[in-house]
Design a binder for these strands. Sequence first.
DNA 1: CGAATTTGACCAGCGC
DNA 2: GCGCTGGTCAAATTCG
Length: 311
Amino acid sequence: MHADKSSVDHGCMPQQIKPLNSLPPSKVSGADKLKAAHVQLTAKYEVHNLEDPESKRLKKDSSNVDVTGVDMSTCESRVAVHTSSEVDFVNDGYRWRKYGQKMVKGNANPRSYYRCSNPGCPVKKHVERASHDSKIVITTYEGQHDHEIPSGRSVTHNAATNTHTMDIDGKLGTKSGGNTVCVDTGERNCLDSKSRLNKRPNEESITNSEAGDMAEFRVISLRNEGPENKLSQPEQQNEDSDMKDDSVSNDTVCHSSSKVPCRSNEHAKDEVKTTSEGSKDCLNVVAGHDTPSTISEFSKQSTSDAEPVQS
DNA sequence: CGAATTTGACCAGCGC
DNA sequence: GCGCTGGTCAAATTCG
């Protein structure tokens, strides 16, 4: 039903690493900060190989995917973010349109389905609260944005309060004033070709969790293959400049990137475990199939990009 | 008035 | 083959 499906169907593009990091402090108003202060994010990084049973279609679709190299590239990455907050809205700087909500088995809380409102952008996400803990919001991103963060738009939920990048190098740059966010990233293999979701191999997922203007964090998932990783340099720079000051210190943000080449890289599931400094929470990042390069890239990116977005 | 959200119905995959 | 469940559609409603 969405034109984007067909339009985006170019197969997968290498994941693009997008520079997204924290919002420029400048955009954060004092009020926002205060709000953020309210947020209590507890975090622990959980690793899910988002291969959740959850999506039957995906499973099937992925299996249907041709194993040709091309198809492999059509992989889709998913990133699950666990955020502990009062509010379940996770703002990642992009604009989302809610297209559905449904009760999920095993969870008393409904799951909300969102899709990027940018025309042609195939990215979707669903948000739900953990059944065992209503304070934990699980946001799962699917797909990769093929556009920039809509800057200049009025973002309704951007309380840029906590954005931190982490160094995958072993430590998460978690700084935190108290909020911690859990991020799960996993890469799914190619998604359903049928379900009209076109995913791009290189997916960048960013999530800012803001609890009603309370907190936010971002997760970046990137993929190291593909020329497109070229994440637009220009872009990066710009953002870079924007986020230079990104010195937020409230929450812990975990960025993890996991790239699972849609290929049968079964061999390797790299697992990176990191413990956040300050003995906060332990963050475990498991990258489905990741390559060091990816990680390094990731860390680079994460530390230097930021995009103030408001939708 | 346009855009976003809500919500019930429909479709498709998976397990039995 | 049937039922269950997840995911999506689209009309109606609400909001800015």
